[in-house]
Design a protein around this nucleic acid. Sequence first.
DNA 1: CGCCCGATTGAGTCCGGTCAAGGCTTGTGG
DNA 2: CCACAAGCCTTGACCGGACTCAATCGGGCG
Lengths: 251, 251
Amino acid sequence: MASISPSEDGLTHREAHCEDCSLSPICLPMAVSDADLHRLENIIERGRPLQRGEHVFRSGTPFESIYAVRSGALKTYRLTPEGDEQIMGFHLPGEMFGLGGLGGHSGETHPNAAVALETSTVCEVPFDLIEGLAIEIPGLQRHLFKIMSREISADEQLLVLLSKRSAEERIAALLLGLAARFRRRNLSATRFRLPMSRGDIGNYLGLVVETVSRVFTRLQAQGLIEVDGKEISILDPSALSTIAGSEIEGG
Amino acid sequence: MASISPSEDGLTHREAHCEDCSLSPICLPMAVSDADLHRLENIIERGRPLQRGEHVFRSGTPFESIYAVRSGALKTYRLTPEGDEQIMGFHLPGEMFGLGGLGGHSGETHPNAAVALETSTVCEVPFDLIEGLAIEIPGLQRHLFKIMSREISADEQLLVLLSKRSAEERIAALLLGLAARFRRRNLSATRFRLPMSRGDIGNYLGLVVETVSRVFTRLQAQGLIEVDGKEISILDPSALSTIAGSEIEGG
DNA sequence: CGCCCGATTGAGTCCGGTCAAGGCTTGTGG
DNA sequence: CCACAAGCCTTGACCGGACTCAATCGGGCG
């Protein structure tokens, strides 16, 4: 299933290695020793670039792998019975997604769908293979538990946001959360580009686009941020933090 | 750390065994063979009964174990920066809780607190021990992943509820979710006692008590349910289901 | 019995949703 | 190169569901 040699079939690229990847320190490899890294690498499949709007997986399809973002940005969402989407999270380089697919009672299928917000590449990790590795590599099992635990925490952080916070607080928290995640990649935490639309932000935060737009305008008028389309500058992080009440971890 | 022989020190009881527990089929033991069951049992600590209001663990304390409800009911919650609580879930017999504690970046601590809603007993499973067992017992590792995955799914189901649903829809979904969980234990799914207060329900669903109370009254007036304090009868499950849009899995 | 806490009910307010109009950007094809 | 279409975003006016504030009720327990 997974050959070690590079393949150029256009679907799976192996010429890229974790050790060459700048995301290594914050991605899966951080959990394994250099000696074990090649074992991890051998099971990872690196896909071709996805165009904006392309799906990695859809809701209801069989759960087989978990994924890491290599470049670009994606969102995961589920469909409500009425057919409209609810975004569960945004996923930036170095972050993993697709971990919710194991929960089913009869046969594992993805409860969520994952779609690219912009041109993106992802690494695919077949779950049964990494499960096997987790038994053999000390620390990897723990790391997988951690990743899932963190996902739980992130979702619960978002629950607090949706349950108790005003529109302004939600958006302040989102911006600070994104800032923290950019900083983690050694990118600017005060000036960055939002990979998602206003509609996506609203959907994620339980608001309508109009409200998102109005809050952006208001925050800008107060001098806390500067908005230019998807370009965001955070001018007053501490004031924003005061509004947010607490930083949001996930996304 | 964990002695095999029974102890009657008042803090830890070993005289009870999973094989005697009616919850076995829906609890942790469902993941292991009879042959391995005793190995699992040996690491499980069964605590003395908790009184209403007693904590199993508090937010910020070191994460060491995960827990299963043996009897009674509990809630997990986290504190907002302002100091008020946000309930993350209700936990009924046979269900596990305390899995969110692994996510921290520096040292594992519980992000949530867990407290008894009524007199309850819980089984404590030291995490490092079950982690070790998971490496040796096929299926147990997978089962732990599943439990966490299900937790993610449950949280995300709740996110949809909080983000998109009206007060009536939220409460209908909660009632149906509870009904399903009672049914799972072979208890009546149409008549049961709510273990939590109206305030807890509201907190969980992102509503104030008054709204919860009004919705109960309204649903009763419509003939969908019958309310007598904490005693609930579901008179018209399908109508309730229509209102809810979809069943809520978690809690 | 009387206290206390939880639950219910009512009246009034407000935040965010809905509806509607218009502007801006992007991309495509004539 | 320009025209037009299609999204996306912004802004305004209005409305309504849930929150707030407040009073009352009721049940469990000392």
